[in-house]
């Protein structure tokens, strides 16, 4: 069922005339606003003639003569002698690389480079000593920092011991006596000299019991003097030296 607008019931006679009156009045006002204006057109208020402004001829001439405004031709930059030199080098290289012979050179250069790389890789894989190929033999030892300072087979013990004794440097004299002992043991095949071995290694290397005991004793004397920091006087030195001489006799007897 459609809805119906239900207005309240009133005494509606005055209202019925009110709406037509309202529309009539509105219509009258609109007619009144539609009347066109009759005001005069606006005119400029300046009565004086306008002045024509022209640029200053002197300034205009200066600007015309300024090179910065000559757009049709490039200005040469101010180059130093060094920059001019590199510019010439650049030009020369450009000329060279543009030449046909240069392209041929690069072609062969690349071939040679590829061949060189191949040879290098093959030699590396075969573990060939590359430095040795050119005349210099590689260092055979594994470590580059060996600190072998003395070779006991090249020392003139007699002269050095005499010198140390004359200077009163008895600790050094005992050291030289001990090194001489090691040399004798090596020469006679009782020990195998290696700078990295300790004194006790040499002691255990000697198989002859009596000789080992005797050597252990002089080793103990040397260690007390050399590592123990004992300051020897001449009397003590002579006593210790006598022990080394005794060992030398034992060594000769054993040999």
């Amino acid at each position: 069922m459609p809805r119906q607008l239900i207005l309240p019931k009133t005494n509606s006679k005055p209202v019925r005339f009110l709406f037509p009156l309202l529309f009539f009045l509105l219509g009258c006002s609109c007619v009144g606003w539609a009347v066109p204006e009759t005001a005069p057109p606006a005119v400029p208020g300046h009565a004086q003639p306008l002045k024509l402004r022209m640029p200053d001829p002197a300034k205009l001439k200066a600007l015309q003569e300024d090179k910065a405004f000559h757009y049709q031709q490039d200005l040469k930059p101010d180059l130093s002698a060094w920059e001019r030199f590199w510019q010439r080098v650049g030009r020369y290289l450009n000329n060279v690389t543009a030449a046909r012979s240069f392209n041929v050179f690069w072609k062969y250069f690349l071939y040679a480079f590829a061949l060189g790389v191949t040879v290098f890789v093959v030699l590396k894989l075969l573990q060939v000593d590359l430095v040795g190929l050119f005349g210099r033999k590689a260092v055979p030892v594994a470590l580059a920092y060996d600190t072998y300072r003395e070779n006991i087979h090249e020392i003139d013990f007699a002269a050095l011991i005499e010198e140390a004794e004359a200077q009163g440097d008895y600790r050094r004299a005992i050291r030289l006596h001990y090194l001489q002992t090691l040399k004798r043991l090596t020469d006679q095949g009782f020990i195998h000299w290696k700078p990295g071995k300790t004194n006790r290694s040499y002691v255990t290397e000697i198989r002859d019991h009596a000789l080992r005991q005797s050597f252990a004793h002089v080793t103990g004397l040397f260690e007390y003097v050399w590592y123990g920091g004992s300051a020897l006087d001449e009397a003590h030195f002579q006593t210790v030296r006598a022990s080394f001489l005794t060992f030398t006799h034992t060594l000769r007897a054993t040999a």
Binding site: A216, H217, G220, L221, Y224, V225, G228, G229, S230, A231, L232, A235, H236, T239, V240, A242, S243, T246
Partner: peptide
Amino acid sequence: NELEKDENGAGEAVLALAPK
């Protein structure tokens, strides 16, 4: 100490000089 067994006294001499 083994050095004290030394017959010619070198061991004792060295031990006497060694750090106490």
